[in-house]
């Protein structure tokens, strides 16, 4: 098999497995996997910026929350139906990431990380400040009657699973497509050596801005789906914790691999699930895993797979 065929076989195999699992899994894990697929889509968005462009953002919760609130608020206050509401969420993420990228990309390195952290913090505080509309920390529930998309009731487990699957498949194939095209290859060139990419005549700023917008929009789409599928929008999704989690998923799964975000989200979800059964202080697990990864396995699972077994892993 050629490398291209192997790549297609692996990723479509994963998608086929996920379809099969919908019929096999018991209810508890079925619900978990739907959630993991949405979170993995968020991680895929994060990975496009961190893994492939080499820009470490500490503020992606801002995009996730932008999608969630863009969708949720338009349902709550404007009476949108799910389809236009999802589009509203994605459009909010697109606009925010374009404005944010144009400002933040004037900085680099450590300054970029702190700028992302600060903008995200401001975003979180703005949600609290307009508590009259957003209901702040408490959040608001999206009623069952408002969650019927084209006659399909998204509160039903099967419908919800397939909606999550559709989003995940779209994000996975989109990211696979992006990095196999010249645009994606240029992003990798920028990650490896920005000065050289610039010297070769690539417009580095435009490519980075493209990566921020793509990454922010995918993250917003995940946020919008999360709010709609699970019927809740709250300010806790805009906190620093939700900026750190995608970083953890991507580092664990393997930064700069297409399937890494999914592997990372899956592992972390069950790790936290088990740990929270044992102790209230389950975030300690997140801390230990982050520390161990930076110390001993900075390539993550996907990176190790690529180094040892599948050298063709995109």
């Amino acid at each position: 098999m050629s490398d291209a065929a192997k790549i297609l076989a692996l990723h479509f195999g994963l998608l086929a497995l996920l379809v099969a699992l919908q019929f096999l899994l018991p209810a508890y894990h079925h619900g978990n996997l739907a959630r993991i697929m949405v979170l993995a889509s968020y991680a895929i968005g994060y990975n496009l910026l961190f893994g492939y462009t080499g820009l470490l953002s500490l503020g992606h919760a801002m995009f996730f929350a932008a999608g969630m609130y863009g969708m949720g608020l338009s349902v709550r206050h404007l009476g949108f139906t799910p389809a236009p509401a999802l589009l509203a969420g994605i459009a909010t993420g697109l606009a925010l990431s374009a404005a944010f990228g144009a400002l933040a990309l004037r900085t680099a390195g450590v300054a970029f990380m702190i700028v992302t952290l600060m903008f995200a913090q401001a975003g979180y505080l703005i949600i609290l400040y307009f508590g009259e509309y957003t209901r702040g920390d408490e959040g608001f529930v999206i009623q069952q009657s408002q969650r019927v998309l084209w006659g399909i009731d998204l509160t039903q487990p099967t419908a919800r699973y397939f909606a999550a699957f559709t989003l995940f498949a779209a994000c996975l194939l989109l990211s696979l497509q992006v990095i196999r095209r010249p645009f994606g290859k240029t992003l990798i060139a920028i990650r490896e050596n920005e000065d050289r990419a610039r010297m070769l005549g690539y417009d580095v700023f435009a490519h980075k801005l493209g990566a921020v917008i793509l990454s922010g929009t995918v993250s917003a789409a995940a946020g919008a789906f999360y709010g709609l599928l699970f019927g809740y929008a709250g300010a806790s999704f805009a906190t620093v914790q939700y900026s750190i989690l995608p970083l953890l998923w991507v580092l664990l799964g393997g930064a700069g691999t297409i399937i890494g975000p999914f592997i990372g989200a899956l592992f972390t979800f069950y790790l936290i699930d088990i740990a929270s059964g044992l102790t209230d202080a389950y975030m300690a697990v997140v801390g230990v895993v982050l520390l161990m990864l930076t110390l001993f396995a900075s390539q993550g699972i996907g990176g190790e797979l690529r180094a040892r077994v599948w050298s063709w892993l995109p």
Binding site: V286, G287, L290
Partner: peptide
């Protein structure tokens, strides 16, 4: 990333 890990460990 490592000090973020440290943050959660100390806090928890």
């Amino acid at each position: 990333v490592a000090t973020i890990g440290l943050l959660y460990i100390i806090q928890q």
